[in-house]
Amino acid sequence: MVWVPSGKFEKGSNVYPEESPIDSVTVSGFWMDETEVTNDEFAKFVWETGYQTEAETKLLSNIQPNDLELNEPGAVVFQKPKEDFKPNSAFDWWRYVPGANWRHPDGPNSSIEGKGSYPVVAVSYQDANSYAKWKGRTLPTEVEWEWAAANGSQENANTWQGEFPYLDEGKDGFVGISPVGCFAKNKFGLYDMIGNVWEYTADPWPVDKTLDKTKYHTIKGGSYLCSPNYCKRYRSAAKQPQEDQLASNHIGFRTIKRTHFDSIKN
């Protein structure tokens, strides 16, 4: 973990409506994971506690009679469409895949073997929170996360180059998720605050009144799927809602510890 000092900054932006208003915010210092939690780190948690993730054990609570594939535990997986495909909405390149989970993030035939240094994904909000509690930590608030990321640069990030969702040219060296710490750290010494995978925060989603605040939390930072032509959310102020129970293969997390003088458990 690295120490993020206290400070004051301008939170929010006017790029997207949900990012406004811009407010001056003061933040107390805290320790934060240098990188996103990795597969190896999450595997240690599972090994020592016997924990099973929601994508491995639970069905979605809002299943409709015709959604037969939702009758099995799984996660949402990005699937790149063919170039001649004309999508009607973002849902056309996302699919709920039974058998997808943190061990098999792209579906039951995928694997994290040899990817111990990659960020763990296909975990739910509760899974991330359970890991944080096991470490004696918490998830960061939205304000804490944005302050920690504000000293970074979108140029130092794993994002999508090319026309989304058809072609990722991989000009940054990676097509898809990258191992943690492959890009320059920011001024606080944190890696991958922008891009690679979205990250959970402790805050419920406050913007859209049509969403139940007890079922959605705010995610920050953008991911390898963010591109200039579609999703310009590879910025510290960017945020989106994520359904708590719905795991996805482009969302991970990192943890914080707020007491400066406590010993830090690596």
Results as ranks from 00 to 15, higher is better:
A148S: 13
W102C: 10
P98Q: 05
A90R: 14
P105Y: 11
N101E: 08
Q154N: 12
E144P: 04
Y131P: 06
T138W: 08
D127H: 10
R137D: 01
G152R: 01
W102Y: 15
T138C: 09
A122Q: 11
P119Q: 03
V123S: 05
K135N: 04
F91A: 06
G107N: 08
T141N: 03
Y118E: 06
F85P: 08
P140K: 07
G152D: 00
N151C: 09
S117F: 06
S153Y: 05
P98S: 07
Q154G: 00
Y118K: 00
V143R: 00
H104C: 13
E83D: 13
K133N: 10
P108A: 13
N88P: 02
S124H: 09
A149E: 00
L139K: 02
A157W: 00
D127W: 09
N151Y: 15
E144G: 05
V120N: 02
R95Q: 15
N129P: 03
N151M: 11
K86E: 14
A157V: 02
W160H: 06
A157L: 09
S130L: 07
Q154E: 08
P87I: 06
E144W: 02
E144C: 12
E142L: 12
P105N: 03
E144T: 00
G136A: 09
A90P: 14
A90I: 15
G99K: 04
L139I: 02
A128C: 13
A90T: 08
Q154F: 02
W160L: 06
R137I: 07
V97Y: 04
D92N: 14
A100I: 13
N101H: 15
P140T: 01
V97W: 09
S124M: 06
N101Y: 04
S153T: 10
W145N: 01
L139D: 06
K133R: 15
K115Q: 15
W134T: 08
N151F: 15
L139T: 07
G116E: 12
N151R: 14
P98I: 11
A128F: 08
Y131E: 03
K133F: 06
S153L: 10
G152K: 03
K133A: 12
N88R: 00
L139C: 11
T141Y: 12
S110Q: 05
L139A: 05
W94G: 03
W134I: 00
V143L: 13
L139G: 00
G136D: 03
S130N: 14
G116D: 12
P98K: 07
G114R: 11
S110N: 12
G152L: 05
R137P: 00
P108E: 13
Y125E: 04
D92C: 11
L139M: 07
L139E: 02
D127Q: 12
G114T: 09
S89A: 15
K86R: 09
E144R: 06
E113V: 11
L139P: 01
A90Y: 11
S153C: 10
K133Y: 02
E144F: 03
F91V: 01
G114I: 09
T138N: 11
E142C: 08
W147Q: 02
W93V: 13
D106R: 09
S130K: 13
I112V: 15
P119H: 07
R137L: 04
I112M: 09
W160S: 09
I112K: 12
S153Q: 10
S124D: 10
P105C: 06
E144S: 04
P87Q: 11
A122P: 01
R95I: 14
P98T: 09
A122I: 05
K135M: 15
V120C: 04
L139S: 05
S89E: 11
Y118G: 01
